[in-house]
Amino acid sequence: MRRVDRSKTDTLWERREPRCPCPSGQGTAACAAPAKASIPATFSRTSGFGLAAFFHLFRRATIMVYVAGFITLGFGALLIIGAKRNWSILVDPPKTAALFYSQSLLRLLFDLDPPAMKWLTIFQGTVLIIVATIIMFAHAVA
Rank of each mutant, 00 (worst) to 15 (best):
R2M: 13
V4D: 03
D5V: 11
D5M: 08
S7D: 13
S7M: 08
S7G: 05
K8D: 10
D10E: 14
D10C: 14
D10T: 14
D10P: 00
L12T: 12
L12R: 12
W13I: 11
E14P: 00
R15E: 11
R15C: 06
E17T: 15
R19K: 13
P21A: 06
P21N: 07
C22G: 09
P23C: 09
P23V: 04
Q26G: 12
Q26S: 11
G27C: 06
G27P: 04
A29P: 00
A29I: 10
A30V: 09
C31F: 09
C31W: 08
C31Q: 05
C31R: 06
A32P: 05
A32I: 06
A32Q: 12
A33G: 02
A33V: 12
K36D: 08
S38E: 15
S38L: 08
I39K: 11
I39Y: 09
P40S: 08
A41L: 14
T42I: 07
T46L: 01
G48A: 05
G50K: 02
L51D: 01
A53W: 03
F55I: 07
F55Y: 13
L57T: 08
F58M: 10
F58Y: 12
R60M: 10
R60E: 08
A61H: 10
T62N: 08
T62F: 04
T62I: 04
I63R: 02
M64W: 09
Y66K: 00
F70E: 01
F70V: 15
L73E: 02
L73I: 07
G74N: 03
G74K: 03
F75E: 04
A77G: 06
A77W: 03
L78T: 07
L78W: 15
L79H: 13
L79F: 15
I81Q: 06
I81N: 09
G82D: 08
A83P: 08
A83E: 04
R85D: 05
R85M: 13
W87F: 14
S88N: 09
S88P: 00
L90R: 06
L90T: 08
L90V: 05
D92Y: 05
D92E: 15
P94F: 09
K95G: 09
T96V: 11
A98N: 04
L99Y: 08
L99P: 00
F100M: 05
F100K: 06
Y101F: 15
Q103L: 12
L105I: 02
L106K: 05
R107A: 15
R107F: 03
L108Q: 04
L109K: 08
L109I: 14
L109F: 09
L109N: 04
L109M: 11
F110Q: 05
F110H: 07
L112N: 02
L112S: 05
L112I: 03
L112R: 02
D113Q: 15
P114I: 11
P115M: 12
A116N: 07
M117I: 10
M117P: 00
K118R: 15
W119C: 01
I122M: 12
I122E: 04
Q124F: 14
G125F: 08
T126R: 02
T126L: 12
T126S: 14
V127L: 03
V127R: 00
L128Y: 13
I130Q: 03
T133I: 04
I134A: 14
M136V: 01
F137W: 11
A140P: 00
A140C: 03
A140L: 07
V141P: 00
V141S: 06
A142W: 11
A142N: 11
